[in-house]
């Protein structure tokens, strides 16, 4: 089980490779400009649960519920870190 950390948007060359490596048991977190993936159809193909950091999402002018993505705070991110031994980021 790995935590996949996505910090750039869909146009960045590295992030697609990270997301496409996901397995069902993994989880991906969109942080910083990674939240732009929330507006992107490609995210629907992700094989693992995907979350977005709420502060980063709202700070970029999006509204809660605007996209189909679960928003989390840093405490929840730490819980994901606790649960996932591996890391891709």
């Amino acid at each position: 089980m790995s935590l996949i950390l996505i910090k750039y948007g869909p146009d960045h060359p590295a992030e697609g490779a990270k997301l496409s490596s996901a397995k069902e048991a993994d989880c991906a977190v969109l942080i910083q400009n990674g939240v732009y993936w929330a507006a992107c159809d490609a995210l629907k193909d992700a094989k693992c649960p995907v979350y977005a950091i709420k502060d980063d999402f709202l700070a970029r002018g999006y509204e809660e519920g605007q996209f189909d993505i679960e928003l989390i705070d840093y405490d929840a991110l730490v819980e994901l870190i606790e649960r996932n031994e591996g890391f891709v980021g």
């Binding site: 490596s21 890391f87 891709v88």
Partner: peptide
């Protein structure tokens, strides 16, 4: 990626 604990 899966063969490694951390992918940096």
């Amino acid at each position: 990626f899966r063969q490694h604990d951390y992918v940096i």
